[in-house]
């Protein structure tokens, strides 16, 4: 290649050429597996029955419409996302507002709040499993000492108990992320806005609604998108705590997908499950952007 040839390259061509190695790596490591998983989802493909492998088009997707296990897991996932999201956002906002104030020990408290985020999901599940244990759990110990319960309880043995304690463990693990994002958002609000609102005789609630909330819409959008995705994909904590039980009470769609692919080796239908999860989170994310991003742009 001569120097004159290189000079003839347009900026665009050169840009593509320079990025080609990274693009190739991304194509090989990300795009290809994603595309391949879609291709697999169009097949009847159970590793235990290789002879039965065949292209069936969208049959795997169509079968989901009357697949009771899948529909039940979708319902559980939807409720799980709703509970985790509401509790995370409300608690996250409260904690962020508290940590945004100036008081003694704020630095230590900010560091402590981050700790749960550093914990892997499996460890989080194991820790809460120990806490909720029916025979030796700390929760039972504390409540018994306080005289609130007469005997040790199996907290994860009832449908509602298992669901809410699992949701609680998930919230505990992901709450710090929400706090950090909202705290960052709070720190960007100019002090003068609050001063002006105070001069205009706005009360605490009004200042929160008219100043804080509009400025937090963008960080809130990030929180909602990422926490929705996290809650939808929640697997490790639930797997360790309840395994999806009792019955189907905590069998989320992510848990069912892992079970379908790894336990039953049904990679065809399992891939279809995974694509449906992707599609659902995509639709929810687009809806969030539509609802909050534009609104935030106008009002801020």
């Amino acid at each position: 290649m001569t120097t004159s040839t290189v000079r003839q390259w347009s900026d665009n061509t050169r840009g593509y050429a320079m990025n080609a190695p990274a693009l190739i790596a991304i194509l090989l490591l990300v795009a290809y597996p994603i595309g391949y998983s879609f291709w697999v989802s169009l097949h009847r493909d159970n590793l235990a029955q290789p002879a039965a492998r065949k292209l069936i088009g969208l049959d795997n997707y169509l079968s989901l419409v009357d697949d009771p296990a899948f529909l039940a897991s979708l319902r559980v996932s939807a409720l799980f996302v709703l509970v985790v999201l509401v509790v995370t956002v409300v608690l996250g906002l409260v904690l962020a507002l508290v940590l945004n104030e100036t008081f003694m020990g704020r630095g230590v408290l900010r560091s402590l709040v981050l700790l749960p985020w550093a914990m892997p999901g499996v460890v989080n599940g194991l820790m809460w499993r120990t806490v909720f244990d029916a025979k030796t759990g700390a929760l039972n110990g504390v409540l018994t000492e306080l005289g609130w319960i007469d005997s040790y309880q199996a907290w994860l043995a009832s449908e509602s108990g298992a669901f809410f304690f699992t949701a609680f463990a998930q919230v505990w693990n992901t709450l710090p992320f929400t706090v950090i994002i909202l705290l960052a958002g709070l720190s960007t609000i100019p002090r003068e806005l609050y001063d002006a609102a105070t001069v205009d005789r706005a009360g605490v609630v009004q200042r929160f609604r008219q100043v804080t909330v509009p400025w937090l819409l963008h960080p809130l959008l990030i929180v909602l998108i990422l926490e929705t995705m996290n809650a939808f994909r929640a697997f490790d904590t639930i797997y360790v705590l309840t395994g999806g039980g009792p019955g189907d009470a905590t069998t989320t769609v992510a848990l069912l997908t892992v079970q379908r692919v790894l336990t039953y080796t049904d990679v065809g239908l399992g891939s279809a499950y995974a694509w449906v999860i992707t599609l659902i989170t995509l639709v929810i994310s687009v809806a969030y952007v539509g609802l909050l991003y534009r609104r935030g742009s106008f009002e801020v």
């Binding site: 029955q49 043995a157 999806g244 039980g245 019955g247 336990t263 039953y264």
Partner: peptide, 22 residues
């Protein structure tokens, strides 16, 4: 039966439902 694993899983869930009066 090639579907034993899936059946076993369903049986475990059903037995949990029996134990919890569901």
């Amino acid at each position: 039966a090639p579907w034993y694993g899936e059946y076993e899983s369903a049986q475990q869930k059903t037995v949990q439902q029996l134990l919890t009066n569901q």
